[in-house]
């Protein structure tokens, strides 16, 4: 869990990234003031707990027919994304660390060899819009089984090439519709949609469907997330 060091050496790039929206938003913190924030944060954690209890690991998100799929020209990219990272799609590999029996790096070829699931599920952005892309990839639980992940680990963190990161509870990560996705609309993912591989999680809000994943870490210590650390709910279940 060593953060990447910036050239300056003192602060990780991620720390700088984390701070940038705070600098932008410093003029409009949670009104009407900081006095309310501890209460709101406490209720938010309580709501996360409620969501974890309501979450049914066997309940599938509705899957739609091909006729209901959002046309490919409507396959949106969230405007809040900082931009496309420099990513070497050809030589990409996925690193897995933490509570696994076979840590290391795995190629896209190895992942594509695992069982594949194609699904038309709704992607709900926290902003309120939604779309129904056609996703395809390996269920994350198949990959976790393949690498010998400890199913008793409580959390999974993913780290991305754009320095984005987020984390999940294990029951949601093991949900049958949680994909290590490498295709959309029957084609390899485009760079703007997270090539070569991303997470797709129909049981959670869109900010949990992390793009450009390069590292997966299994841990018992609760990791945060890029948006979660700034005030968005961590569980973010749907």
């Amino acid at each position: 869990m060593k953060p990447k060091q910036s050239i300056a050496g003192m602060i990780s790039r991620r720390e700088i990234l984390k701070l940038s929206p705070l600098i932008l938003l410093s003029g409009c913190d949670i009104t009407p003031g900081e006095k309310t924030e501890p209460l709101l944060r406490t209720v938010q954690q309580f709501n996360d707990w409620v969501q974890s209890k309501v979450f049914d690991p066997d309940k599938l998100a509705p899957e739609y027919t091909d006729a209901d799929v959002t046309p490919e020209e409507g396959f949106r990219v969230n405007g809040k994304d900082a931009g496309e990272p420099d990513i070497d799609v050809v030589n990409w590999s996925l690193t897995i660390e933490g509570l696994v029996s076979k840590p290391g790096t795995y190629t896209l070829g190895q992942i594509a060899h695992l069982p594949k699931r194609t699904m038309n599920t709704r992607h709900c952005c926290v902003e309120g819009w939604s779309m129904i892309p056609q996703w395809a990839g390996t269920p994350l639980r198949e990959f976790l089984r393949f690498v010998g992940a400890d199913p008793r680990a409580k959390y999974i963190e993913v780290r991305c090439a754009d320095d984005y990161f987020t984390s999940y509870d294990m029951p949601s990560a093991l949900h049958p519709q949680t994909l290590l996705c490498y295709e959309a609309y029957g084609k390899p993912l485009s760079i703007s949609h997270g090539a070569p591989a991303r997470i797709v999680m129909p049981v959670k809000l869109g900010y949990k469907s992390a793009k450009w994943v390069h590292t997966i870490i299994l841990t018992n210590e609760k990791p945060g997330g890029y948006w979660e650390d700034q005030g968005y709910d961590w569980f973010a279940g749907l």
């Binding site: 409009c28 949670i30 209460l39 709101l40 944060r41 938010q44 709501n47 902003e127 005030g231 709910d233």
Partner: peptide, 12 residues
């Protein structure tokens, strides 16, 4: 103030 803050208030 912003979306995350509004969601906190809403779900409180």
């Amino acid at each position: 103030g912003w979306l995350a803050g509004a969601r906190m208030w809403h779900f409180f």
